[in-house]
């Protein structure tokens, strides 16, 4: 029996956070000693515009049950408008996933500024609970049948 079936399902979430806002927001949540679920594993990127939709698909393939994408609030992007491009890309990705029968709620996006530690903690709580309800990623999880 695998570990997963014995224990309760703990969602595994990958967070791609932008260096200037959401990562700093996450940092603030930490330094302010806010309590939030430890399920999000953070990968820092310079800008949310750096996030290729394939990052998300690859994460879902390799063991993530959900992906969180964090960027600066519209208009606040350190690189002027990187986050606007991501917004379009992720909208389309979510539409496609939904069409394929992969729960689009697994991919979440949020705007968190460097001052919003509280918001970051809340977002993480919310998506962890959401994904706990949806359950583990089954459809495109990579099975290494060597």
């Amino acid at each position: 029996m695998t570990v997963e079936t014995i224990q309760e399902f703990e969602p595994n979430i990958i967070g791609f956070l932008c260096n200037w806002c959401s990562y700093a927001g996450a940092d603030l949540a930490g330094t302010s000693r806010m309590q939030y679920p430890p399920n999000v594993k953070i990968i820092r990127v310079m800008c949310s515009g750096r996030i290729n939709p394939m990052f998300v698909v690859n994460a879902l393939q390799q063991g993530a049950d959900g992906v969180l994408i964090g960027g600066c609030h519209p208009g606040d992007c350190h690189y002027q408008h990187g986050n606007y491009f991501t917004r379009r890309r992720i909208t389309i990705l979510k539409n496609l996933l939904e069409f394929l029968g992969i729960e689009p709620e697994r991919v979440r996006m949020t705007w968190v500024s460097a001052a919003e530690g509280r918001k970051f903690a809340e977002v993480v709580e919310e998506i962890t609970e959401d994904i706990r309800k949806i359950g583990p990623m089954k459809q495109i999880r990579r099975v290494n049948e060597w």
Partner: peptide, 16 residues
Amino acid sequence: PLLGTFKPDDPEEFIL
């Protein structure tokens, strides 16, 4: 190109 442009008021209901 669609993904090379944006409008500041593109819909974003799904964003938290």
